[in-house]
């Protein structure tokens, strides 16, 4: 098994007009892992994925997938990559069976068992027309079409987008099942942190086109922390805090979220003379929201006029 990363980008940059949607992206995805690629809407996740697959040309930098330059992916390399698109678009006139037969004609390692297994898992009838399928069913069919070629690398672009919780759970179960097989690598983007938490080994976060996080999932959770400070009166103004993300101010309380909390950070906070200082554990979702939410201070203290109204 090669130690080479299955995906590697160097300075990958893409503009749409004058707007930079992916800036100087340097990323390496190790083989055999489940890699979550998260970020807010418009942060450049889908653009990155399209560049990885050679569907979009980068303006600067380069990317390689399975050791091949993404701009020159050969048919052989493409056969080893499964790609699930964001909106699960398929040919509406096909039936589920026809879609499978169509796809099977191109992929030499097509596994009919996997195809049948996944469509069965999603309760799809082979004779159902694609255009009559619900969004969740279509996602299931897309997943079946992506998995049945038995790809070495799976790239899933927000596979759970628009799915109800049940369909999403089915999708995640399929992914969990897949991760338990061989050395397959899964690179997926998502907005559902619960899903990420269940399946991902690593996490990369794009924040307004810039990669800010690339680490194991636990590291992210460990590094983003919330500190709860209580004061006798109104909390004092905040000084500059290293790794500061956001602070929420209430009557006599200040909740500060930051990364890389350490002795130095604590020293700065203690300088505010709080009555108490307490580290609060964050869920991944909370950590993620704090990380990608609006930076700075928020206040929940209402003025007298606001209270009376």
């Amino acid at each position: 098994m090669s130690d080479q990363p299955v995906i590697r980008t160097r300075g990958l940059t893409r503009y749409f007009g004058a707007r930079c949607v992916v800036r100087d992206l340097n990323l390496e995805v190790p083989r055999g892992c489940v890699f979550a690629f998260v970020g807010r809407n418009g942060s450049g996740k889908s653009t990155t994925i399209r560049m990885l697959l050679g569907l979009l040309r980068p303006d600067r930098g380069q990317a390689s997938v399975l050791g091949c330059d993404s701009r020159q992916l050969t048919p052989e390399i493409r056969a080893r990559i499964g790609y699930l698109t964001e909106e699960h678009q398929l040919y509406g006139w096909m039936t589920v069976r026809e879609a499978g037969e169509f796809q099977a004609a191109f992929f030499p390692r097509w596994d009919e068992k996997i195809f049948r297994g996944v469509i069965g898992h999603f309760g799809l009838k082979p004779e159902a027309r694609v255009k009559h399928l619900s969004r969740g069913m279509r996602a299931g069919l897309c997943l079946a079409l992506t998995l049945a070629p038995d790809p070495e690398l799976l790239i899933l672009d927000d596979p759970a987008l628009g799915l109800d919780p049940v369909a999403r759970r089915s999708l995640v179960e399929s992914m969990i099942y897949l991760t338990r097989r061989s050395d397959r690598t899964i690179f997926f983007s998502s907005h559902h942190l619960g899903d990420v938490e269940r399946v991902a080994d690593y996490l990369a976060v794009l924040d307004y086109s810039v990669l800010r996080v690339c680490c194991p999932l636990e590291s992210f959770r460990d590094n983003v922390q919330e500190v709860q400070l209580r004061f006798a009166g109104a909390p004092p103004p905040l000084p500059a805090i290293p790794g500061f993300l956001q602070a929420i101010r209430s009557e006599n309380q200040l909740r500060v979220t930051c990364v890389h909390y350490n002795g130095e950070t604590e020293k700065v906070l203690r300088y505010l003379s709080p009555v108490s200082l307490e580290l609060v554990p964050l869920s991944l979702e909370d950590a993620f929201i704090s990380y990608l939410g609006e930076r700075g201070e928020k206040s929940f203290i209402l003025s007298d006029t606001e209270v009376s109204s």
Partner: peptide
């Protein structure tokens, strides 16, 4: 081209699976 400006909130760790 200069790399994106650091904000001090970056979390990068080597990935080895």
């Amino acid at each position: 081209f200069a790399p994106p400006e650091k904000t001090g909130t970056e979390i990068f760790e080597p990935l080895t699976y």
